[in-house]
């Protein structure tokens, strides 16, 4: 059997995280969690991840957006797929007027709304992993 894929969740709501982590672990993913952007970046530095699940509203505001922007500028992390998980899809447009918050924070990303049904979550995670593997293949050619 192939190596389990490693996922990192950055979200400041431990209860919500418990809910998605359990679903992902059951689907045989290896899941780490960071409850704030700082720990998240540390984790990304320490270990290589196949995918990041990122919350938008953290801390004092939309710190998830900052995380995504920082990732986009990092040559090592830019190509890591990001699944944005947010409860504020409707509000994003006017929280950041005139800025394209989605689609495409980073090269490969996708957005789902909280709460997310298990099947949808797993589908999106898998689709993103496949998409990023394909992108990597094309790049190395």
């Amino acid at each position: 059997m192939s190596q389990p894929k490693r996922l990192l969740i950055i979200d400041d709501d431990p209860d919500f995280v418990a809910g998605i982590k359990s679903i992902l672990v059951k689907a045989k993913y290896e899941v780490d969690v960071a409850y704030n952007p700082k720990d998240g970046f540390q984790a990304l530095k320490d270990k290589a991840y196949d995918l990041l699940l990122l919350d938008v509203m953290m801390g004092r505001g939309a710190e998830g957006i900052m995380v995504a922007r920082k990732l986009g500028k990092d040559p090592n992390l830019r190509n890591m797929p990001v699944l944005i998980i947010t409860g504020i899809r409707e509000q994003m447009a006017f929280l950041f007027p005139g800025q394209a918050v989605h689609p495409h924070f980073v090269s490969v990303d996708e957005l789902v709304e909280k709460p997310v049904e298990p099947k949808l979550l797993l589908d999106r995670v898998q689709a993103l992993l496949i998409k990023s593997a394909e992108a990597r293949k094309t790049n190395s050619k």
Partner: peptide, 28 residues
């Protein structure tokens, strides 16, 4: 706009967390 954004987050986040755990439990 701020009210909408704050209320949205404060009300929806706890409900979202409850629902998410419920999903996880149902799966488990």
């Amino acid at each position: 706009e701020n009210f909408a954004a704050i209320v949205s987050h404060e009300l929806k986040a706890p409900l979202g967390a409850i629902q998410q755990n419920l999903y996880a439990l149902t799966e488990d």
